[in-house]
Write a protein that binds this DNA or RNA. Structure first.
Lengths: 226, 226
DNA sequence: TTTAAAATGATAGTATTACTATTATGTTTG
DNA sequence: CAAACATAATAGTAATACTATCATTTTAAA
């Protein structure tokens, strides 16, 4: 499993990058160190100038790979969701029971960290922190409709469709499979954030994880009523 | 009801503004037109310079009321949640049954728009659109812990506590009242956004509202199992 | 009604951001 | 070995995100 996923290269939508960062050492360094820098200083303070200084290259070289930092965030987000989609496929493939598939899928998208699998150059646990804090910023913009049309959220949406499909299989009568799927994915990121920063408005803590909360939710809504 | 809420002035946490915008005509104009401008051009493109031009005042005058646009967003967010808290209190006060209180509370925080009540100078339906697109940006920053310590999210958290309290009353055995409350509030904003912009990953549309989805959720999770 | 205080307006200035353009230098590959 | 390509270095622009200063207008207190 480890080696299998290690060699998977995500297909990132045309238009997110100017030049494929996978195609060169500099490109990989931009992505790897960019992720670390965003984690350290936050997306708002992150600039290509600072990244250039960090990896001892020129600002203009970074601009040859990505138009701007928003596109960079889209790139690493697509990377993350592509990796998540892979894991969803692999880890539910061998499960015959739809209920088991649903439990596994919900666990995967809501669980704390997944350091069991790691790519050669991107630190997934750091990436996950960035996704929790910054992923919503990729679509909470005035350009969301244009960018959606260009397919920039395709992989993310595919993850939602996949979970919704399992929900439908478990309970075909349930009226809101897509909403529930998007609520679980987006909501679990929110609960992770609250657990770290606004602890009083969540029940998640060291002993209770967002996965517990959402597994319970899915059980009550989809499974028990079926 | 209308007149009652019209006269309510929200208490905004010390430190969010430099000078109370409620204290002058210019201050009110900054808030009123600032809300409209953010709605028109988006929070990312919004600047105090543009706002100054719009209301024919100087950029520096705007800076006398708010340190920066992040604080401005915090201000209008506090305003919104303060108004929501008021409505929660008023509209559940006369309900004796906890179940009814919960349904009403969930309806209030998740429903489409609430143009039944309007303040003298802030357009609530426009404000709600901004909250849906931009509220999460108030806390998805590196400064969230400092700002939380300063009480900048106090009113928002109070809204969550209130809903969580009703959940507990309806079903004291339920293990995740705060998480469910924060999931409903945050999640409904997300569903509203999806309904507008990423329609394929939600079941909400012209005929199905986020309120339907969350009322169903609450019914399955809290009420039926109690 | 005067006068002092407070609020606003106008102008200027700085550092940083978010880029684009140009040219030089190094590095592959056919 | 040369052409093509990638990167480095430098410079430059417009906009952003402010701060400071000082003049003018408004308001409120004596």
């Amino acid at each position: 499993m480890k080696t299998l996923l290690q060699n998977i290269r995500p297909e990132i939508q045309e238009g997110i990058f100017l030049k494929n960062p996978e195609s060169s050492a500099l490109g990989k360094s931009i992505v790897k160190e960019g992720v670390l820098l965003i984690d350290e200083i936050g997306f708002e303070s992150f600039t290509f100038k600072k990244l250039g200084e960090r990896i001892q290259t020129n600002e203009s070289s970074v601009y040859r790979y990505f138009e701007n930092k928003h596109k960079f965030l889209l790139y690493i987000s697509s990377w993350y969701w592509s990796w998540m989609e892979c894991r969803l496929v692999f880890e539910t493939a061998n499960l015959v029971d739809a209920n088991d598939q649903l439990m596994k899928a919900v666990l995967l998208v809501t669980e704390d960290t997944a350091d069991d699998i790691s790519s050669d150059y991107i630190d997934e646990s750091v990436l996950k922190r960035i996704i929790i804090s910054d992923f919503t910023k990729t679509f909470l913009t005035k350009e969301v409709d244009d960018e959606n049309r260009e397919g920039f959220f395709k992989i993310y949406k595919r993850v939602i469709y996949r979970i919704a499909a399992i929900i439908k299989e478990v309970n075909p009568a349930y009226a809101y499979p897509e909403s529930l799927a998007s609520n679980i994915v987006e909501g679990s990121m929110h609960q992770h954030f609250l657990k770290q920063h606004l602890k009083t408005i969540t029940n998640c803590n060291e002993s209770v994880s967002p996965a517990d909360f959402y597994l319970n939710m899915v059980n009550s809504i989809v499974i028990k009523s079926s």
